[in-house]
Design a protein around this nucleic acid. Structure first.
Lengths: 337, 337
DNA sequence: TTGTACGCGTTATCAC
DNA sequence: GTGATAACGCGTACAA
């Protein structure tokens, strides 16, 4: 509205629009004297260039989109911090879209990115996501995409992840070491690469001693977001032999602990619990929670750096098979003693 | 780039740009026949209008900014969910800026909003914020601002908050009830209205019985973000009489619990702890944590609704003295038994 | 019912 | 060193 424009500056100073524009960008073509006049008036009037006019002209928005399932989750909120740090440093703005684990919402979000609104997209896919057409459509418009954490197996794009397979092994080993005979892996989706990989590592270890172990479910999918609590409760009832749980994501961990608390299932005495999580309160829980903690901040940071490199270098530097693997750490606490 | 434009659609169909534009908006001026042709081609080519061109022309961006101190905090992450829900429903995009409790970063963020980039701003101020000039500058450009949770006392703008004063009273009453003689209030900033109000209520209760109580610090500011842990540790050392703590924000609560755990200070036996917090793990902590939990989601939701109402109704409906107060709840758990 | 033409605020090219 | 002017893609008076 009452916004001050470059044209107005020009008129007030009796100069041309072009001169003002150049002066504000400190072009060598403009004399120091007029530069000074222009800049000082601009400051005085608190002039700020209209970003959308500029975007339209330059065909770039200096904006990236971040599409993720949830923000009320310690992993994602830390990752966001990393993303924001890079964005701030490089002069990018950040648009957020939450999928809430819904494929439809994710598609909708991606479609908002298809028209010049953003220069690139950072995505951690929903647990429902199987199809990749929506993401391919970004590529067809030359909008770079980087996956972080929750990638899409088989889709060729740069990815920043953690060493999920090894951590799955580590989790299983730890539980077996601590005497578990019937550990089970709680998955949040059979399509997510992070779950698949974490489980593969887990299963690999379990299989080494499988003949010792009776048949019971190694993996259980808690897909429907609504009643995770009930699902976990019924699992524990149905398979009383279960003496170890690996929660593949934070939400499953918290619900597991709630179920055990409500049903007076002693941890670690009857069931040992290990969670993939960056929960800050893990050491304060009752009992303190053994976790495999991802380098969330660094994953966010590195993925944003990767994306911006692609945007600015026009993808020559980073290829679609680029994959950064940042290691997680096992933090042993009382829930698995 | 290879982006498909309205002009291209027009050329392919041998129509004018105006016709296409109108048809895509389902204008009554265009015949059904040509509408159909246009829409089907648009779909086929996956046409999506350039939002920045549209913003420029319409002088509105359908975008709001959210400026807040932190996202790795359960209150803010839940509030974000509320904001996003409304934004999605009303067709707005959301740009996030984190201040990390820094006034400079907050100013920088606000300055990005000063030029047509956003139609309105939702803000929860940093703990360093005292000056209001940066926010006034938004108003001078007719960009509506709504405060949520962390408002600025004395600055006339719509606000969505919780009943901080009453909750401060409630906190004090509860601790006194449970036998505390020397409860202390941990504040994160002496300038934040939420801290002032929570403390005022707290102090009001304490003062009722003040003559019974020796002199000790009723309120302590943990301002510097870096070493909150150390600050709390030294407070507890310096004032061993302290037998109750009210943590005014989540970060202070967690650090308090960590200090007590490390120093083997038994909760609630030696010190009772109550936190303003929406921590999902509060019931799972050791001991479970008594909280005053804010309606974070609803605060986010209502503030976004308020902002969008102002944007669309051009402020006639909502005045600067608008203030919505959503009540918090006391959840009594073991940390204060 | 459709088309012409202009402007939103910038940037970039080219002429002076 | 400075100034016209043409885009960028869209929306909308106003003609036709």
């Amino acid at each position: 509205m009452g916004n001050i424009t470059i044209r107005e500056l020009a008129q007030r100073l009796g100069l041309s629009i072009a001169t003002v524009s150049k002066a504000l960008k400190d072009s060598y073509e403009i004399s120091d004297a007029t530069k000074k006049k222009i800049v000082s008036l601009a400051n005085e009037l608190n002039y700020s260039p209209n970003p959308y006019a500029s975007s339209l002209r330059k065909q770039q928005s200096k904006t990236i989109a971040v599409v993720l399932p949830e923000v009320a989750d310690s992993f994602f909120s830390l990752a966001i911090n990393g993303i924001q740090e890079v964005a701030l440093a490089k002069g990018y703005h950040v648009l957020f879209y939450l999928s809430h684990e819904s494929f439809e919402l994710e598609k909708k979000a991606i479609n908002h990115c298809n028209n010049g609104r953003v220069d690139g997209v950072l995505i951690s896919v929903s647990s429902e996501t199987r199809d990749t057409a929506h993401i391919s459509s970004l590529r067809s418009k030359n909008i770079p995409v980087v996956f972080f954490d929750r990638e899409l197996e088989g889709y060729a794009a740069p990815k920043v992840v953690t060493n999920d397979y090894e951590c799955g092994e580590l989790a299983a080993k730890h539980l077996l070491d601590k005497g578990c005979r019937f550990p089970v892996f709680l998955s949040t989706s059979d399509a997510l690469a992070i779950c698949q990989n974490r489980f593969s590592g887990f299963a690999n270890e379990i299989n080494k001693i499988r003949n010792e172990i009776a048949t019971y479910p190694f993996i259980i999918n808690c897909s429907n977001d609504k009643n995770i609590y009930d699902q976990i409760a019924s699992i524990l009832e149905k398979f009383p032999a279960i003496d170890g749980i690996v929660a593949s994501v934070e939400k499953l961990a918290i619900q597991t602990l709630l179920v055990c608390a409500d049903q007076n299932i002693p941890i670690p005495d009857r069931i040992k619990v290990l969670a993939f999580s960056t929960l800050e309160t893990a050491p304060l829980l009752n009992p303190s929670l053994t976790t495999i903690s991802q380098p969330a901040f660094d994953i966010g940071k590195h993925s944003a750096e990767t994306l911006i490199t692609m945007i600015e270098k026009k993808k020559h530097s980073i290829t679609n098979d680029y994959k950064a693997v940042l290691p997680s750490a096992l933090n042993i606490r009382k829930s698995t003693q």
